[in-house]
Amino acid sequence: MLVQRAIEQAGIPTIIIAALPPVVKQTGTPRATAPLVPMGANAGKPHDREMQYNICKDTLEQLVKIDAPGKIVPLPYEYVAKV
């Protein structure tokens, strides 16, 4: 999050795909999306090209859409890792 904030401060807009939305909110993310994923598969299920594509696409669309710092947009994709 410190790095996201530093990039944003330098003038480049950023967005993070977060597995732990309360954490990124607390640490001051400018923009985030939150699919239902475990930490370690933030961009989606392994080898699920479609889910990963849609998570990235929706997230990048939110990079443009989010209009206020600190907003976290939930995404309708779910992957439960088998541990």
Binding site: M1, V3, Q4, A6, I7, Q9, A10, G11, I12, P13, T14, I15, I16, I17, A18, A19, L20, P21, V23, V24, T27, T29, A32, M39, N42, A43, C56, T59, L60, L63
Partner: peptide, 17 residues
């Protein structure tokens, strides 16, 4: 941040958290 700027990046997608 400086590196990405010098590369002409317009937006950054991050994963973490």
């Amino acid at each position: 941040a400086e590196f990405l700027k010098s590369e002409g990046v317009d937006g950054v997608l991050m994963t973490a958290g």
